[in-house]
Design a protein around this nucleic acid. Structure first.
Lengths: 196, 196
DNA sequence: GTCTATACTCAGATAGAC
DNA sequence: GTCTATCTGAGTATAGAC
C-alpha cells in the first residue's frame, strides 16, 4: 500500500461520489436526485459525502468543472495536432462523437443539463471555454481562405449544428446506430456548404 | 358581459396560471418554481390554482400539450401551403425562427426543458408529433428527387441542425441580432450540401 | 370558484460518536 | 474520515370558510 493512503483514499471517495452523482444526475435529473440516493448508490454514508463536499450543489459544480477541463484539454490537443481549419473541425466533431459513444453521461451532462438551474451564476455551456475554443476556429478558417466569407456565427452553426443535433438524438435514444456511421455524410454536406 | 361568464372566467384563470407558470418555469426552471411563486406572480390564491389543476405537474403537462398542439397545427398548415420539400423546409425553419423571436418562452420550454424530469413517461421532444412531422419531410424530398439519396437521419440533421443550434444560441442570450438576419446564409449552406 | 390557514412530507444539512 | 441519528425548513397539497 502506498504511503500517502489518506490522500489517496480522499481522492478516491471524491471521485466515487462524483461518478455516482453524474450517473444519477443525468439519469434522473439533478432535482430528482437526493443526497440520500447518491449515498446509497455509492455505498457510503451521508456524513462522508458532506465531509467531501459542502453541499449537493458543490458536487454538481465539481463535476461540471472537471468536464470543462477535460474537454478544454482535448480541444487544445486537437488544435495543436492539426493545422488546417478543415482538419481541426473534423477532429473536433470526431472527438465529440467518440465522447458521446464512450461516455454518454458526460456528454449528456454537458449538453442536456440546464446548469443555471442548479449552479447559480453559471454561464451557458456554449459560452464555456471549450465551446469558445471551438467557435474561434471558424473565423481563423475564414481569414486563411478555407471557409467562405460569411457571418462567423452562421458559419459556426452550419459546421457544428448538424453534429450537435445528431448527438442530441443519440443521447435521447432516438437513434441506435453508432454516430461514426453518420460522420462522413454530415461532414461532407456541412463542409460542402461552407468551403470556398 | 357574455352569458357563460363562469366558463369564460374558468378558461381565463386557467390560461393566466399556464402563462405565468411558463414564464417562471423557463426563467427559473421547473423545480426552482414553487406553486407559491406562481400564485404570487399570477396574483391569485393557491387554492385557486389547485382548483384548476390537480398539482404542479399537471400545469407543466397542460403547457406542454398546448404547445405541441400549437406547433403541430402550424406545421400542418405549412405542409398544406407548400408543395416542394425545399419550400416546406424553408417555411418550417422560418416559422421556428419567428416563434423564437415572438414567443421565446414557448420555444425555450419546447427545446431546453428536460420534460422527462418532471413529466413522467414523457417521450423526448424530438419524438413528439410536430418533430416527427418535420422529420418526415426529408424522406419525401429524397423520393421525389429534391434531396440527394443518403441516410434520412443524416439529411435531417444537416437540414435542421444549424437552425436549431442557432435557436439554442439565441435562447441562451449568446446572440442578440434577430434570427432572420442569419436565415439566408444558413439555409443556403445547408441546402447546397443536400440538394441533388 | 376563490380565499386563508395549516397539515404533512421529505430532502438538505448538522452533530457528535467512533 | 466515516458513520448514524436527528433537526430544520421548504414546498406540496388539503380543509374548510366565504
Amino acid at each position: 500500500m502506498p504511503s500517502p493512503q489518506n490522500r489517496g483514499n480522499h481522492q478516491s471517495v471524491r471521485h466515487i461520489i462524483m461518478d455516482t452523482a453524474l450517473e444519477l444526475f443525468t439519469g434522473n435529473g439533478y432535482f430528482n436526485t437526493t443526497v440520500h440516493h447518491i449515498q446509497k448508490a455509492a455505498g457510503i454514508s451521508i456524513g462522508s459525502i458532506y465531509h467531501h463536499f459542502k453541499n449537493k450543489e458543490a458536487i454538481a459544480k465539481a463535476i461540471y468543472d472537471a468536464l470543462i477541463d477535460q474537454m478544454s484539454q482535448a480541444i487544445l490537443n486537437i488544435m495543436q495536432q492539426h493545422d488546417s481549419t478543415k482538419d481541426r473541425c473534423r477532429a473536433v466533431i470526431s472527438y465529440l462523437f467518440e465522447l458521446t459513444e464512450n461516455e454518454p453521461r458526460k456528454m449528456h451532462y454537458m449538453l442536456h443539463a440546464n446548469h443555471k438551474e442548479f449552479i447559480p451564476d453559471q454561464k451557458p455551456v456554449c459560452s464555456s471555454v471549450p465551446f469558445e475554443m471551438i467557435a474561434s476556429m471558424v473565423p481563423i478558417g475564414m481569414t486563411n481562405g478555407e471557409i467562405k466569407p460569411m457571418d462567423p456565427i452562421a458559419a459556426s452553426v452550419c459546421l457544428f449544428g448538424p453534429a450537435l443535433r445528431l448527438i442530441h438524438l443519440k443521447l435521447d435514444g432516438v437513434i441506435q446506430r453508432p454516430l461514426s456511421e453518420y460522420f462522413d455524410e454530415i461532414w461532407n454536406a456541412a463542409w460542402e456548404g461552407l468551403a470556398v
